[in-house]
Structures are given as C-alpha cells and as structure tokens.
Amino acid sequence: MSIIFNHVSKSYDADTQLKTDALKDVSFKIDDGEFVGLIGHTGSGKSTLVQHMNGLLKPTSGEIYVDGKDIADKEYSLKDLRGKVGLVFQYPEHQLFETTVFEDVCYGPKNLGLEKKEVELRAYEALKQVGIEDDYFYQSPFDLSGGQKRRAAIAGVLAMKPEVLILDEPTAGLDPKGREEILELVSRLHRENNITVILVSHSMDDVADYADRILVMDHGKLVYDDTVHEVFKHVKELEEMGLAIPQVTYMMYDIAAKGVDVSTDITTIDEAVEEIMKVWSK
C-alpha cells in the first residue's frame, strides 16, 4: 500500500495571530513494503506528519493519496483507512484501559465491526506476535511490566491487521533490551508479513540499524529523503537541526581525521567492524 503526500501543508490556529506552520509543502512517496525512518528535532513536525497518514489530521492544503485514492474524498472511508494504517502513539501503554490484556487487544478489531470469533482470533494472534504468553491474557494490563505494556499496546494495533504500521517513538523510556525487543518485533513484522513500517525515532543508531530510507523533518519542512547512508553524510546539517549521526559513524570520521584511509560511509556496528578489520589487517 503506497502513501503519497502531494504538497501537503498544515497550519494550526490558521486564522489567528498564533498561526503556526507545522508542515510546509511536504511531498514524498512511500511504497509498499518499505521500512522508513522519520527523524527530526522535537517540534519539527514528525508527529503532525504521521497523524495525517491515517486521517487523524487534515491538511490545510495539498493532497494525501493512500493506495492511489485521495483520502479527502467524500466517499473515502476513514474507518477503512484506520484499519489499514495502524498508528502506535508515543507511550501507547497510557491508552490501555480494559480490565484484561485480551479485552484490551480486542478493542480495535471489535470497532472495525468484525464478528466476535474473528476479533478474538486476531487478538490471540496479535498477542502471540508481540510475544505475550497466555498466562498474561486475563491479567489486568496494569500489572504488566513497562516493556510488556508497550507490547500489549502494539498488539492492539496489530489486531487491526494494518498494512502500514506507524510507530511514534516506540522505544522511549524502555531499557536497552526492551528497545531491542520492540525493534526486532517491528523488523520481523516487516520481513515476514511484508508490513510497511514508518518508524519515528530520536535514536540515530536505531534508525541506522533498521530503516532502509530516512525522511528528515526540520521546522515543518522535509529536508532530506534518501537512503540511510546518504542522509548520514550530512553531518553538519543534521547537527545544526538538533540531530546527530550514529556514534559509529562519528567514530569512522575520527579515524579518518587521523589520516587513515577508512570509509566514513558506515552506519552500523557490523559495517564498522568489517571496515576496521579490513584496514587494520592489511
């Protein structure tokens, strides 16, 4: 399922003195099955951007096409759209509310108007996908650990069987292992179920490890839209925007600055190990 933004702009409080332009003439296309990282400083417009993708916000100007259809059309069903484009908000566990984990995960598919059996089947599958054991199904979601709550909340979105999964800083506040578990889960869904993933993150290391392509937002503008390697070549510009490059990339620049002939086009630990071993075993 492709998503196209065609000159999308969004202003908040447009008719007042407090007008803020959250999105300024943003255009891009995301194809079926891509894994896209979305980065930008706080307030750069990332969350505003993703909330347009499932119709939670409407553009002030410009069009958004999902699967070739303009989602602003009167006939277009936003309900269907929200089934297809799943959005996991920041701190999604704050939205857990049912009495049991299982009930909570059922909430989404139930609202899609599916039959009870189908709802429960989907909830079961989704909980299995995120790695929550049967023992926890009938416990209160509030008795789960931080990482489990986060995964239960993600299961609630997966149970809608989205074709596109958008995650807004899904690893914030989790311990390193918890971060890895969430990212591995997302990566597996992408590989095995061919779900298109849009990952909003403040961790350059995570984006470098998992995404194929990066969109960079700065003050409401889309400033870069390129492969991971190309985007992280803009060291100075990214730093000026309040961002950074992966720590290993900095490392390679430091080594190169010593006059060693190493590639700086490195964004992951594995690549760095390989490159350093190549140069150092000569």
Binding site: P176, K177, P246, M251, I269, V273, M277, W280
Partner: peptide, 23 residues
C-alpha cells in the same frame, strides 16, 4: 550487562567486537 537487559555504549560494543576479532 546483557544478561541484566542492559547494554554498553556503541563505541564500547564496537571495541569489544574488534577485540573478539583479535585486535
């Protein structure tokens, strides 16, 4: 640290991997 669900800084991990490879 890994067993305790923690990690080390990326640079420390890189150094650790390079050491394992014999540097």
């Amino acid at each position: 640290l890994k067993e305790l669900r923690l990690a080390v800084p990326q640079v420390t991990l890189l150094a650790h991997e390079l050491k394992k490879r014999g540097l």
